[in-house]
């Protein structure tokens, strides 16, 4: 039996991806099981999903605790050791990131492959939905499933034109995924970026939720307060000099402020994920 753990955020399609992998394995003549782990998580909130592939019907119904593979759909979470933790010795991490495999701050007896799935998704789907944009890469590095099976399974979930677009994304990631590189770090960095989970109520920090963030051109700004009053998260502070300033921990990157600015003084720019 091989076990896979998927890390993503609501809206990136990690749960659908887990089902596509299970369906792909079944297309290839194997038994499979895809378990999502979510409660009331919203778009942007971190979540995990699990897949098992076996030659016999899967009876185990616990979550996967020591996966062979870990796939991360999110650029921000890709910088976090949680995606490499508790893998089986020699386990494989596939991360969505612009960084090279050897640059990722991940440690352990693991091998790492990377692919810029967000870039591929934005190109082929026009939206940062990275699920199918990473599945092609997974088919390349995982001998347990075939690209043919993945394509068949994608069509089951996305028939027609949407399916074509998603398969184009999957094929691009199949081509662009890096080689598997053993992790250089032997020990995980002590400083761990906190991944704030979802649920009800107020959260501490949602800065990792955003793919795009508002950049204000103070020269253009006329101080009308549209951006400030329409922000669902009160993430724009109204400063003493009558201009908005982003409160980083509160901004989810929805883009309402930029859309409502009458003079286009706000631009949504893709967030550059930085190494600590």
């Amino acid at each position: 039996m091989i076990e896979i753990r998927l890390h993503g955020r609501g809206g990136q399609g990690a749960v659908t991806a887990s089902r596509i992998i299970a369906a792909a394995a079944f297309e290839d003549g194997r038994y499979s099981q895809a378990i999502p782990m979510y409660g009331t998580e919203r778009r942007g909130a971190p979540l995990t999903a699990y897949v098992r592939i076996d030659n016999v019907r899967v009876r185990e119904r616990e979550l996967v605790h020591t996966p062979d593979y870990s796939i991360c759909f999110d650029e921000f979470i890709s910088m976090n050791q949680i995606i490499a933790n508790s893998l089986k010795p020699g386990g494989v991490v596939l991360a969505n990131t612009k960084f090279k495999a050897e640059e990722l701050p991940l440690a352990g007896d693991i091998k790492i492959a990377t692919v810029d799935a967000t870039g591929i998704a934005l190109k082929h789907l026009g939206r940062p939905i990275t699920n199918t944009a990473i599945l092609g890469a997974f088919a390349k590095i995982c001998p347990e499933i075939s690209m043919k099976g993945v394509e068949k399974a994608i069509y089951k979930y996305f028939p027609g034109r949407i399916g074509d677009m998603n398969i184009a994304a999957a094929r691009a990631s199949y081509e662009q995924v890096s080689e598997l590189v053993p992790a250089i770090n032997k020990e995980a960095p002590k400083e761990v970026v906190e991944i704030v989970s979802g649920g009800y109520g107020a959260l501490k920090d949602v800065s990792g939720w955003r793919v795009f963030e508002p950049v204000v051109d103070e020269e253009k700004c006329i101080g009308c307060k549209n951006c400030w009053i329409y922000c669902p998260e009160a993430a724009l502070e109204w400063t003493a000099n009558n201009k908005p300033a982003m409160i980083s921990r509160s901004c989810k990157g929805c883009g309402v402020c930029a859309n409502e600015c009458p003079v286009k003084a706000i631009e949504m720019k893709r967030v550059e994920v930085k190494k600590k």
């Binding site: 107020a202 998260e233 921990r249």
Partner: peptide
């Protein structure tokens, strides 16, 4: 209200509550 909350991006209900 105490933000950020746990809503999706661009949530109208979050705006309604804030106002």
């Amino acid at each position: 209200v105490i933000t950020p909350g746990s809503t999706c991006q661009g949530c109208g209900a979050a705006m309604a509550a804030r106002l």
